[in-house]
C-alpha cells in the first residue's frame, strides 16, 4: 500500500499537538500547506475529504480522520474532548 510522504503525516500530527496552529489551519490552511511543502495537487486531494483520494495519497487511516476533524471542527480539531458518542449510555456506564 502507498504511504504518503512524511511531510503530510507530520503536518497532521503536528496540528493535533498544537491547538493554536490547528485553529489557524482550520480557517486559513495555505500558510500551513506552504510550511509543510504540500503541493496544490496534494492539498486538493486532502481537502476533497474522500477516502479514495486520501487513501490514494497514502494517508494513514487514523490520520485521515484527524485531518477531517482539523479542517471541519471550527478550529477545535485538536481537541478530542466534548459531547460525544457515549452520551446516551453514560448514566449506566458511570453508574450515576
Amino acid at each position: 500500500m502507498t504511504r504518503a510522504p512524511y511531510r503530510i503525516h507530520k503536518l497532521i500530527q503536528d496540528m493535533m499537538r498544537d491547538p493554536a496552529a490547528a485553529a489557524r489551519f482550520a480557517t486559513d490552511p495555505q500558510p500551513i500547506f506552504d510550511q509543510y511543502e504540500i503541493s496544490p495537487e496534494e492539498a486538493a486531494l486532502l481537502d476533497s475529504g474522500s477516502m479514495e483520494a486520501m487513501t490514494g495519497l497514502g494517508v494513514h487511516p487514523n490520520l485521515q480522520m484527524k485531518y477531517l476533524r482539523l479542517r471541519h471542527s471550527g478550529g477545535d480539531g485538536a481537541k478530542l474532548v466534548g459531547a460525544g458518542p457515549l452520551d446516551a449510555y453514560l448514566d449506566r456506564l458511570l453508574e450515576r
Binding site: 478530542l80 474532548v81 459531547a83 460525544g84 458518542p85 457515549l86 452520551d87 453514560l90 458511570l94
Partner: peptide, 9 residues
C-alpha cells in the same frame, strides 16, 4: 485518560 470517543476524562 485522553477524553476522546466520548469517554469522560
Amino acid at each position: 485518560t485522553l477524553g476522546d470517543g466520548g469517554v469522560p476524562v
